[in-house]
Amino acid sequence: MTTPQRVILASGSSIRAAILDGAEVPFGVIKPNVDEDEIKQQAQADGIDLEQTAMLLAEAKCMAVASREPGIVIGSDQIMEFEGRAYDKPKSMAEAKSRILETQGASHTLINAIAVARDGEIVWRNLDRPTLYMRSLTEHEVDIYLREAGPEILHSVGAYQIEKLGARLFDQIVGDHYAVLGLSLFPLLALLRRENILAY
């Protein structure tokens, strides 16, 4: 019987770690040292679309760890797209309010890219693009939400956390719920079964 390979999540994201924890995947965490802004700026200058940009970021995070650590390394990134524009995480509660007011009553997509390396070489990629339909909101409702949710939402690219109070902002989600959270779980679990990390 072969010994299962070590699994590393190349991310500082607590929600991605929680997703793997919930599925009882054995893993460790190493936060990658990657200049995301530089990658995004170069991709934009090169005319690379947002899906490819998300994958470039996932690959960079993956390889930043996989280049020096053996085993299976998982890198992931998420980009929010609304009306053809990409959005980064809001830097302030004022920006978060503006983001929600801009996207309320409309739909947007979250591009979730995953890259997985085995012993320093990328062996698998996955791209998901769920669509989220935000309900119509008044400014008063948004103010209440921001006050109750607090600055923790600044860790979310859309200025919401769908797994918490942010669920109240939406009418519908079409696509993988885990991709909305930041890590498409089901295709990743299938890969880990093929790699004999998981028995079932």
Rank of each mutant, 00 (worst) to 15 (best):
Q41Y: 05
E69Y: 09
D171L: 00
G22R: 09
L185V: 04
P151W: 10
L169K: 14
T2S: 05
D49S: 06
K31L: 06
L137F: 09
A23G: 14
Q172F: 11
A18D: 15
L146R: 05
M63K: 13
L165E: 05
E38Y: 07
Q42S: 12
I100V: 10
E152G: 07
A113Y: 08
R193L: 14
A17P: 02
M63I: 13
E102T: 15
S11Q: 10
D37E: 05
I114N: 03
R129L: 09
K89A: 04
L9H: 00
A54K: 08
Q78W: 01
E81Y: 04
T103V: 00
H155L: 02
E81L: 00
Q42N: 11
D46W: 01
A18L: 14
E195S: 08
Q5I: 01
L132N: 13
E69F: 11
L127I: 04
A167N: 12
R68F: 06
I122E: 01
Y200T: 07
T53F: 08
I72L: 15
L181G: 02
E81A: 07
A115N: 01
E139L: 13
G71D: 11
F82R: 08
E139R: 03
Q41M: 03
G75Y: 08
G166Y: 03
S76Q: 07
A43E: 11
M93C: 06
S107V: 00
I153E: 04
E83A: 11
L50H: 07
V25Y: 07
R168Y: 02
D37Q: 15
V29D: 03
N33I: 15
T103Y: 02
V29P: 10
R129D: 03
G105L: 02
R129Y: 07
T3S: 05
T2Q: 01
G84D: 02
R193C: 10
L110A: 09
L9G: 10
P130Y: 06
D21E: 13
E141W: 00
I39E: 13
V73N: 08
T109L: 06
Q5R: 14
L57I: 06
I122F: 03
E148N: 15
G22P: 12
S92Q: 06
L169S: 13
E51N: 03
V123W: 12
P130T: 09
I100D: 02
M80A: 10
E51A: 03
A17C: 13
D77Q: 07
V25W: 08
G71K: 06
G158N: 09
A96G: 01
E24V: 10
K91H: 15
V116W: 07
A64T: 09
E24K: 09
L57S: 12
A159D: 11
N33E: 15
E83T: 00
A45F: 00
Q5D: 11
L127R: 05
I39F: 15
M93I: 12
H155C: 06
G150L: 15
L169W: 08
D171F: 01
Y133S: 11
S13I: 14
E163R: 00
K61G: 10
P187Y: 04
R194V: 12
Q5C: 11
G158P: 02
A43Q: 01
I100S: 04
Q52M: 05
G150H: 07
Y133G: 07
E195M: 08
L101V: 00
E51W: 02
E59M: 03
T3K: 09
A17H: 01
